[in-house]
Each structure stands twice: as structure tokens, then as C-alpha cells.
Nucleic acid binder design. Sequence first.
DNA 1: CTTGAAGCTATAGCTACTAGAGACCTTACG
DNA 2: CGTAAGGTCTCTAGTAGCTATAGCTTCAAG
Lengths: 145, 145
Amino acid sequence: MLTIGKLGEAAGVKVPTIRYYEQIGLLPEPERSAGNQRRYGQSALDRLAFIRHARELGFPLEAIRDLLSLTDNPHHSCAAADIIAKKQLAAVKARIARLTALKAELERMITQCAQGTVADCRVIESLSDHSHCAQDHHGTSELAE
Amino acid sequence: MLTIGKLGEAAGVKVPTIRYYEQIGLLPEPERSAGNQRRYGQSALDRLAFIRHARELGFPLEAIRDLLSLTDNPHHSCAAADIIAKKQLAAVKARIARLTALKAELERMITQCAQGTVADCRVIESLSDHSHCAQDHHGTSELAE
DNA sequence: CTTGAAGCTATAGCTACTAGAGACCTTACG
DNA sequence: CGTAAGGTCTCTAGTAGCTATAGCTTCAAG
């Protein structure tokens, strides 16, 4: 049986995060020791590793909740899981496209910086003005999800 | 003089966001009409456009605060602005690299989905297991900033 | 002068955690 | 068996960057 610390270490998740996942119902309430400490088995480790991996892939917790509910009754079709993954892929592609445009603009800003005073700094100027933008970045923000 | 709604429209920022920026000190408190409504001039529009553009480029508000303090006394060297921009560029590059790896893995997951039941769904399996990962994505999470 | 849109303040909520306080449990060593 | 270190407990509050709600007031058009 694993303590919460060992579980966290094994799965690569911090201890308070595990308790948080339990609180929001992503992890079931585990057994407790005589002294009220959480004790975990292999299934908790598997589930937590699953959650961690999905988080790393950028899935929001709600999507992970859905995926977990699929694994909890494994006789359903995996079409739902497929849809979730495709949605995530589309989001990832969109973010890459946006970030690539941002990268180009930042590089342009930096190379134009004359190392002078702020009064003629291209970095500041670029940020004050959209006219130099190589690509449109109005509308959906990279940061807004 | 612009109302808060017109200002938001002109700068592409939502009204509550403008009030939020004022609250946290990114925008100065504007004049008020006789009936206590905010009235803005050109300088507020410039400043707000600057903030919006910087946000779109992925700058955190604290970096924007620094950049604004540079523009507020424009006789300093622009080296500080340059440093902020370079730091941001590095962050953007790192995010692109990570997202590209995630994209590859998501694509692999999806193409392997056999359209069967969850029991043999590759999407689910991929998320349970790191062994197929084309690239390491332990450590720093894409989502963690 | 009326009406409807836009504005006001204040508070609470969102995601996904992270940090702190102060008490309690477990375990290894002597 | 005692003790000390370090892990764990609960609870609360904080983070970023907004967004939403409630209940009210003000403004501008007709």
C-alpha cells in the first residue's frame, strides 16, 4: 500500500494535487490507515497516471472526467474518446499556428530594437501598433481558451 | 470623449476587462461624467491597445506592467523592454516545441483508434501508458506556466 | 417624457492548482 | 520504549485573468 507521498512520486503528481483530484471526484476516496492517512493501491496509481498523462496532453479536467467514465464502463464504443481526442488535436493545431505567428512578430520586434532609449524602441512601438503584424491576430486570443 | 463601451469596442477589449485593468492599476482612473460614468480620451485608447496587443503576444500582465512603466518614462534605455521580449520569445518557442510533440502523439492516438469498444481503444490505452510517447513529456507541463 | 440600452458597484465564480497554519501520525534509531 | 524528524491531516485562502450576476442609475433617441 502506498502513502500519498509515494503515490505522488510514482505518478509524478504533487501531493496537494492528489487531494484536490479526490475532492473534485476524479479519484475515489481511498482506504485509510488506523491513523486516518490515505493508503493507495495499484488501481489508484494507474488512474492517476492516466490523469497526469492526459493533463500533459492538454486535456481539460472535464474531458478527463469523461474519458475516465468511459474506462469505468469499457463496453461502450470508443467513438466518444475519439471525438474528445480529435477536438483536442484541433485545439493544439490552432495554438501552434497562433504561436508561430507570435514568434515571427517577437523576432521582428527584437531584431529591430535599436538598443537606444525607449523613445525609439521598436519593442514598445510594435506593441503600440498593429500595422506591422505579419499575420492577423485579432479575434481569438492565444491565451483565451 | 469615449464611453467605456466605445473604448472597449475600439480597442477590442470587453467592458468588464477594462474595469478590471483599472482596478489592478494598469489603466489610470479616468474622468467621470456628471452621472459618474467613465469618460476616456485618446491616451486611454492607446494604452489599452498596447495592453491588448501585448496580451495577444502572450505577455503576462506583470510584464505588461513593466513595459508600461518604461513607456511612462521614455528616457530610459530600451534594454529592459528588449529583455522582456526575448524572455517571451524563448517561452513561445518552448511552447511550440511542446505542442508539436503533443500534436504528434494525439495524431498517433487517433489513427490507431480501431473504432471498436473502449476495451481496445487506442486513445484510452495511450493515455494509460507512456511507453509509446514519441517524445518525452515528463517534467514541465505545457499547461504549467 | 419615456423607454431601452448602456453604465455603475459589489460580490462571487471560473480552472487547476499552490501555499500556509497548526495539529497529528509513522518510522527509524538509540 | 522513547524521541525526533519528516510525512500527513484538515481547512482556509491565494494565484492569473478574467467572467457573470444582481440590483441599481444614467444617457440618448424618439
